[in-house]
Design a binder for these strands. Structure first.
Lengths: 190, 190
DNA sequence: CAAGCAAACTAACAAGTGTTAGTTGTGTAA
DNA sequence: TTACACAACTAACACTTGTTAGTTTGCTTG
């Protein structure tokens, strides 16, 4: 059990601050104070503020990509794939709710990695839409506009990072099931 | 037909910039350039950068509050109230998608108005939850956790500002109906 | 003990920040 | 013509920003 390096610690604390105020509003002096050191000392462990953002966002984006790859390549029914996607979001968002804030709100401040991030995101969305389209063809889901369905489900999942930490106790399996039920079957009786 | 004042124009252009990069990353010189003037000239029309943010956010938050007041005080069925809420979000988000970005992402940069904003938001969410609870009691909607249902619906509605401008052409009535159907009845067959 | 190294420090920089003061030009009303 | 308000300007301010250079501290290992 190797413990966290100082660099990982800085990135973790940075993600927390970025969630509260956004990347641009957090200064290196803010981050240093939260770490209990001086701003200049941060540079013994990281190369730049920008690199911190890269580390936070890209690792998360890649986690979603590889999760989606596994799901989309499986032979499960469309509805089951959707449940797996919900599970993926709940899982990642609960483990790293701070980083998820940057992924959602600060991706536009990426520089060298911006195009890579955009590619990962659009691939993800295309896979998602394909799953829905397959479900419509196979008669598993209603014949509504796939992009409206995707928008509705995906924005809910993308906002989990705001909501999960607000719950005092949280049973992730239960949350996944509740969300699956609501997102897939709706909230109306009949 | 009184046309836009210079102040309103500045606020409108600011909202557009805030949507792209967030409040903190937009400088007064950025805003001035977008207006075709020098930064100092902005102060002939506005008091401070902070005041611009206040103007954008508070007017929107109040629009939602008064919309919700009308809906929650009506005698309609719960499901119909929900449809009205969806309509409210579609309507405001389509009219002011730039400002909605600030409302969602930059509210924490409010200063004097922060507590007022938070009050409006929590009142709004309480009214929303009450509508859901009433719907459960009256047997209109399923007996699932009201906060999970609210989270799911509300985060979708709060993200409309990202999505609406991406559609080339958009029929707002159609979008409202599609969203109502998906959010209320789900996407599964049966 | 000596050497080495990781990780903190102080001091400083050049650039960028929101904002103010005072000035200039332009169109309109007296 | 004069007067005046409006809306732009230039110049500057005090402060904050990310980052670098060079130095010190204290542990670990030969």
């Amino acid at each position: 059990m190797k413990s966290e390096t100082r660099q990982q610690e800085i990135i973790r604390v940075a993600a927390k601050l970025f969630k509260e105020k956004g990347y641009s509003a957090v200064t290196m002096r803010d981050l240093a104070k939260a770490m209990g050191i001086k701003a200049a000392s941060l540079y013994n462990h990281i190369n730049s503020k920008q690199d911190i953002l890269n580390a936070i966002i890209i690792s998360l984006a890649e986690a979603f990509s590889s999760g989606m790859k596994q799901i989309s390549e499986s032979n499960e029914a469309c509805i089951d794939k959707l449940k797996k996607i919900i599970e993926l979001h709940v899982h990642i968002s609960s483990k790293n709710s701070y980083g998820m804030a940057s992924l959602n709100n600060d991706w536009m401040h990426l520089e060298t990695q911006l195009n890579y991030y955009k590619k990962l995101r659009s691939d993800y969305e295309n896979d998602f839409k394909t799953i829905l389209e397959d479900g419509i063809k196979s008669g598993e889901i209603i014949d509504a506009k796939p992009d409206v369905m995707m928008f509705s489900i995906l924005t809910t999942l993308r906002s989990l990072y705001i909501w999960i930490p607000k719950k005092e106790v949280i049973n992730l399996k239960e949350l996944t099931d509740d969300l699956s039920n609501i997102l897939i079957n709706g909230i109306a009786i009949e």
